[in-house]
Amino acid sequence: MSALRSCQRALQVRAVGRSLVSARSMATDSQSAPPAKATDDKQIEHAPPRDIVAADLVSGAPAELRHRAVRIFQYSRSTTQSGDAKSSRWRIDWDILPGGGRWENPLMGWASSADYMQGTRIGFRTKEDAIHFAEKQGWDYYVQQPEVKVRPVKNYAENYLYRPNKLRIIRTK
């Protein structure tokens, strides 16, 4: 335990430094992006550094994993169904590998893969949890904006609304 602590202390600086780099280059999260003002041309301030435990040291995950950006996102609602069951959790998954990601196996015609993360998806309750996890693991991440929802008010009576102008809709229902 104490060994872990000491690595933690030793690595904190490195981890924080890296997360800043990732925050700059991967700032896809529009929610947190400050609205740009025309007059304000000052440098956008970095988020204050947080304590990040460098868990990747002891996680046993292959070091190559650190070179792959992860995506933090919510499942979008499927348009073929009305339910939105899976869309409240946040997930982390990996981009496919361009070369060895998948190929057709010449023996069976099935898909083979050299990518050990291709079937992995991690679920979180909140976006912050997911970000925290990615930072702990030392992964570059980007956050995909959740679905933008605007629900106009609907009313059955609108079907029978009187419109004084020329009729613009022909209902064949």
Binding site: K149, V150, R151, V153, K154
Partner: peptide, 11 residues
């Protein structure tokens, strides 16, 4: 979410 938007429904 509707604030600031004019919805098309007249009601």
């Amino acid at each position: 979410s509707l604030a600031g938007r004019r919805t098309f429904a007249s009601t």
